[in-house]
């Protein structure tokens, strides 16, 4: 399937500061793609470059066979849901949603039905005559969504649209957003700094770090096979094991597991939930790594406990285990060698 949006080697500087380096990314039709990154990683700038509010210093953007980056924002068939909604304060909810249709000269008879349908989709059809200032944050967010979707864009850009909402409303809106995206079948390019939100919503996640793409993959892939230490630690929690490889075996302290990579140092990521208690004595199975460790700290998280444990060699690990009361002293733990994911080198920037 040909990609809908094709970002080719985009670079952007603000003065001497490089905000985006050589970004290449495709968005597929109907896809929910999340650009995830810390604040200052350049994710909003990337969105603004696609929308046309910023000009890239290098690179091209193509959409469905048409060059996009040379067009002014009002000629691009993309719409944006802004972080602070940006509803027009002098227009009613109806007129806000009708705005795009009116300026594009859509027939009056069609405007009414399309606006009502769009507002119905976000369950705001009973507020047509309201002024935006009388609506709550969540309601304004819905109107902003309807205002963008009513134009039937090929691509919808969403700039941290849920960040101004409180936690409960936010979770509810996440669910609705995902359902809505499935219904309308429009590709969403969603920007957020919240990895849980990214995991919950996305078909694919593009992780942005200091203006460059760190990894682009599905949530499951990026979680289970993080490419770098940064990815492993940014998405979920991870133990970073700086192991030494020799003779097909990776060694980290007293722990060892088979690894056929080249001789030398290598970083591994091990998720805390992959470390589990074991009662059995060490089996003669090189694919399961067994070790004894004492519990330093126990953090109760509801269904699970997060344990900080120290191996006999003094190396520290974090393990997530099902909750079962207060734990003290030394226990036997194990993990599968396959769960220790080798990371790409040169993760530091």
């Amino acid at each position: 399937m040909a990609p809908l949006l094709n970002i080719r080697s985009i670079a952007k500087r603000f003065g001497a500061r490089h905000v985006l380096h050589d970004i290449s990314l495709d968005v597929n039709p109907g896809e929910f793609l999340t650009v995830l990154g810390e604040s200052g990683s350049g994710k909003t700038t990337l969105l603004r470059v696609i929308a046309g509010f910023e000009q890239p210093d290098a690179g091209e953007i193509w959409m469905a066979g048409e060059r996009l980056d040379t067009l002014p924002p009002y000629r691009r068939r993309v719409n944006t849901v802004f972080q602070h909604y940006a509803l027009f304060p002098h227009l009613s909810v109806f007129e806000n949603v009708a705005y795009g249709l009116r300026v594009q000269g859509v027939a009056k008879s069609e405007v009414g039905s399309r606006v009502e349908k769009a507002l119905g989709m976000v369950k705001m059809d009973s507020y047509v005559a309201s002024a935006p200032s009388t609506l709550s944050g969540g309601q304004q967010q819905r109107v902003a969504l309807a205002r963008a979707l009513v134009n039937r864009p090929r691509l919808l850009l969403l700039d941290e649209p849920l960040s101004a909402l409180d936690a409960n409303l936010r979770r509810q809106m996440q669910g609705e957003l995902k359902t809505l995206q499935r219904e309308v079948g429009i590709a969403f390019l969603f920007v957020t700094h919240d990895q849980d939100e990214a995991m919950a919503l996305s078909d694919r996640i593009a992780l942005l770090r200091a203006g460059a793409l760190e990894q682009v993959a599905s949530p499951r892939e990026i979680y289970s096979r993080p490419a770098t230490a940064y990815t492993a630690q940014f998405i979920g929690q991870a133990n970073l094991l700086r192991a030494e490889i020799a003779n097909g075996v990776a060694r980290w302290g007293a722990l060892a597991w088979p690894c056929d990579a080249a001789v030398g140092p290598a970083d591994f990521s091990l998720r805390p939930e992959h470390i589990r208690f074991t009662a059995a004595p060490p089996a003669d199975d090189s694919h399961t790594v067994c070790f004894c460790a004492s519990i330093v700290r126990q953090i109760f998280c509801g269904a699970t406990d997060l344990l900080e444990i120290t191996c006999q060699s003094g190396h520290r690990l974090r393990a997530r285990v099902p909750s079962r009361g207060v734990l003290e002293g030394e226990y036997r733990f194990e993990f599968s060698a396959a769960d220790a994911v080798r990371l790409r080198e040169g993760g530091e920037r």
Binding site: Y74, N79, T80, Y99
Partner: peptide, 26 residues
């Protein structure tokens, strides 16, 4: 707010239309 001007352009309004429909009324 400048993001209102951006929102207008994002919705397909040229700078001239944006002036008369957003900036001037405000």
């Amino acid at each position: 707010p400048r993001h209102l001007v951006e929102a207008s352009q994002d919705l397909g309004a040229s700078p001239r239309v944006t002036f008369w429909r957003v900036i001037f009324p405000l």
